[in-house]
Amino acid sequence: MKMTYREALREGLKNALEKDSRIFLMGEDIGAYGGTYAVTKDFLKLYGSERIFDAPLSENGFTGIGIGAALGGLRPVVEVMTVNFAFLALDQIVNSAAVYRHMSGGQVSVPLVIRTTTGGGRQVAAQHSNSFEGWLTHIPGIKILAPATVEDARSFLHFALEDNDPVMIFEHALLLNRSEEVSEKPAMISPYKALVRKSGDKLTLITYGGMLQRCLEATEASSDVEVIDLRSLRPLDTETIFSSVRKTHRVLIVDEGWKSGSLSAEISARIMESCFYDLDAPVQRLCRREVPIPYARHLELAAIPQTSEISAKIKEMLS
């Protein structure tokens, strides 16, 4: 059956709310408004204000309440409208959620799920187009998931809520209307396993989230390129990455984030550390241009990796 990424997120949330009374949602405009991206439309009516908290514009505050509620035995799902605003909650995420278990010698844990949207491409300019998920992967103690498919959008929340540690889920805004064929029952493949979405033997293309579809489009006609969807950005499934690199000997990383101090840099370094002698050529990266995202359409398109650019890069690397 066909399902959109938005419907998949909705289904994941509904299943969770119906299964476990400890689960509640808290975030900006998730109730009366129905969610900025209509993911939680009608939820307030369906589950009531005891489960669906329309929060004021206090990202640090309500993330902190989520942490406390998790410490106290509930299973909060905090929604931060977009990753751009998640930085207002960074103190709570980085200095509290990520450290409590380790700092307490394993006594307390923060089973908190934070959902947020990420990515550019909608002409909403510099302050609403960031891809900060890579930045968050710097932090030990949290897990970072990025569903790139409808199937993953449907099941990642389940895994995140089963987890007794803080998990952040980055949903790409451009994928919300994407429709894919899915089975009636979710496949439930652990997010901590990177998946080879397409096999090939001459080049390993590593990507995730909003870039996956572009990478698949760019390589549609080729059997040379192996496309890996990371799914989890922390922890990284390096085993899947390395075994592909050992087969293809060439690597291209496509990441919507910036290059400097980034996830793509990290992946590249790990390949260099572990697969240096397997490489036939230097690892290449295709990332967001090192500028804030402009409003004008042509400038934005030029700043974020596009399918044509990915195709050109692959061609260059295989020639």
Partner: peptide, 11 residues
Amino acid sequence: IPQAVGLALAS
């Protein structure tokens, strides 16, 4: 402070 609010909400 918000974490205490969360703890109280849980209780």
